[in-house]
Design a protein around this nucleic acid. Structure first.
Length: 259
DNA sequence: GCGACAG
DNA sequence: ATCTTGTCGC
């Protein structure tokens, strides 16, 4: 996709946690949750992307992967990866600043603009209503949603046992913006298996986000977008490490002090 | 101060 | 996220 994203990189590279929180509070008003968007499998959702990031903290390296799927058949259409230095530590609530720089770089390499991006983590289900899926959506203008494997800081009742059953994710009393508000949903994608935690990112409703996740997860607990992106970013991380070691070996062979 | 808390 | 063996079941 074309690179107007570059202009927004400053919104992903704070120097301190306070700066990061400031960026979130400044951008959060731009989140739009009133578009149902095209339904799963429809022509308007022909290209659905999954993004994920893997880390090698010892080497200070991250690798992001984007996998673009056919929204109807879930066949892979295109992939892209990007590796780079870790730009921010893991701090609960500030995950976007750790993941988005590499994700944006990978997205730029895609040959076409996704109709929907599925992120690993949360959207508006976030202490400041601005998780990484919402952050990515606001920066790019893309329609986004978040799928997390854990409930984070939210409470929920156990959803029914059948695929498609769900229960609301609720803000803890005394915390967050609107205590008691439904910020996401615990959604059962496989009968009898632990649910996933879905929230709207940007330009989507919670109902639509859940419908897309169910469509993208016909067989396993996690959506195909997530599973494929997860596999690819691990491969990209390993490849980046191998390339790094090869360069090191070359430098050593050239001899100390040589250049 | 302590605990908990996406990836 | 990542570290890690075996194990249960289709």
């Amino acid at each position: 996709m074309p690179p107007p994203l570059r202009l927004l990189v400053e919104h992903t590279t704070p120097r301190t946690e306070d700066e990061a929180v400031g960026i979130q509070e400044r951008l959060r008003s731009r989140v739009r949750l009133d578009e149902p968007g095209p339904p799963p499998g429809s022509p308007g959702a022909a290209a659905v992307a999954g993004v994920d990031v893997a880390y090698d903290d010892a080497a200070g390296r991250v690798a992001a992967a984007v996998v673009l799927l056919d929204g109807r058949t879930l066949a892979v259409r295109e992939t892209a990866t990007a590796a780079g230095p870790v730009a921010f530590p893991y701090v609960p609530g500030l995950l976007a600043f750790r993941e988005l720089p590499a994700v944006l770089t990978a997205l730029e390499k895609l040959g076409r603009v996704p109709d929907l991006v599925v992120c690993d983590g949360y959207g508006v289900a976030h202490p400041r209503r601005f998780g990484l899926a919402s952050h990515l959506g606001v920066l790019t203008g893309l329609r986004t949603l978040g799928v997390a494997k854990n409930p984070f800081v939210f409470r929920h009742d156990e959803p029914g046992p059948a695929r498609g059953d769900s229960s609301p994710l609720l803000e803890q009393p005394g915390r967050g913006e609107v205590p008691g508000a439904e910020v996401g949903r615990a959604l059962r994608t496989r009968a009898g298996v632990k649910p996933v935690f879905v929230s709207a990112g940007h330009r989507i409703t919670l109902d639509a986000a859940c419908a897309h996740v169910l469509h993208l997860a016909p067989r396993y607990r996690l959506p195909e977008t997530t599973r494929l992106a997860d596999r690819l970013c691990r491969e990209a991380l390993a490849a980046a490490g191998a390339a790094d070691r090869a360069a090191d070996a070359g430098r050593a062979a050239a001899g100390p002090g040589s250049r």
